[in-house]
């Protein structure tokens, strides 16, 4: 096959270069930092796996990881069923379809740091609309700058507000692809609404939901901007998620070695959980 056309590789080249710049080179730098110690002046000393051991034994890391898992788990528990429920409630044809879709997409169009600032101002106890309303009108003692529980609720509500739309849109795409005949057949077979959901809608949505859950897992596990602008990780360390802690170590304390090791552990966890999840979800597809 001498005439085999090799030009195709040329078209892939820009992507390869981009991926190299984007991922491979920074990753190699991080690997480099993670096994060395530096005191500045570009002086490096071999540290081996010391940083990895320290991080893995550090209580601070355990605490941040725990908070991170709690956060991710909570938002998934809320956003996925809520997103599916909203998608099921949306009209499937007619005038309201585009209106609903635009309304749903709006939160996702707002820059992340704006979302954080917005919710910060919105929920401040004295000047924020919500803060004022909760404290002074309803008489609920709410202050996310002082109370860890308030701060947690605020961070989660903010994420649900920001990202449930993604689940909605993906689930909706899955729903509208189901041919009308399925619903008609189910009606005639005497299926209940629950059966229709369980045996038609859910199986047909499974693929897009897998993608939705995967995306939400990875995004929420790496979340930084919004909680940082909202609470700065406080009060105390109560909302210091993994990425916020990582930035504190790397930029706040300038411990590049431990920060690099932590990044790699962080990356490994994200990758492992995503892989495990994807394998489990697609296990019985042929």
């Amino acid at each position: 096959m001498k005439t085999e056309n090799q030009r195709g590789w040329l078209f892939v080249l820009p992507v390869l270069i981009l991926v190299a710049f984007n991922a491979l080179i920074p990753l190699m730098t991080v690997v480099n930092y993670s096994v060395q110690e530096t005191f500045g002046n570009n002086q490096f000393f071999w540290a081996g796996l010391r940083w990895f051991e320290e991080i893995l034994r550090s209580e601070r890391f355990h605490a941040a990881l725990g908070r991170q898992l709690l956060f991710t788990f909570t938002i998934l528990i809320i956003e996925v069923p809520l997103g599916v429920a909203i998608a099921l409630a949306m009209p499937r044809r007619g005038f309201w379809v585009p209106v609903c879709l635009v309304l749903m997409a709006l939160p996702m169009l707002i820059p992340w740091n704006v979302v954080g600032s917005m919710w910060n101002i919105f929920t401040l106890p004295q000047i924020g609309l919500l803060g004022y309303f909760l404290n002074d009108v309803l008489g609920i003692n709410y202050d996310m700058t002082q109370q860890p529980v308030s701060a947690w609720i605020t961070v989660i509500v903010m994420d649900v507000w920001h990202w449930t739309s993604l689940v909605v849109l993906l689930a909706y795409a899955g729903l509208v692809s189901i041919p009308e005949a399925y619903y008609q057949a189910a009606k005639i077979d005497g299926a209940s609404n629950w059966s229709v959901f369980r045996y038609i809608q859910l199986p047909k949505m499974k693929r897009v939901l897998t993608i939705a859950i995967l995306l939400r897992f990875m995004d929420s596990f790496n979340i930084y901007t919004e909680p940082f602008t909202l609470t700065g990780g406080g009060p105390g360390n109560s909302t210091t998620l993994l990425s916020i802690d990582l930035v504190k170590i790397a930029l706040g304390q300038f411990d590049l070695g431990p920060a690099a090791a932590m990044s790699l552990i962080y990356f490994a966890i994200t990758l492992a959980v995503s892989w495990l999840f994807y394998t489990l979800m697609t296990r019985d597809d042929q």
Binding site: P179, A181, A185, K187, I188, G190, P203
Partner: peptide, 20 residues
């Protein structure tokens, strides 16, 4: 409604419940 009429219908494209 259809389920009260005691009828059955077969459609142009096969409708099956995939997971069953």
């Amino acid at each position: 409604p259809p389920d009260k009429r005691n009828i059955a219908q077969v459609f142009q494209f096969p409708v099956i419940y995939d997971t069953m």
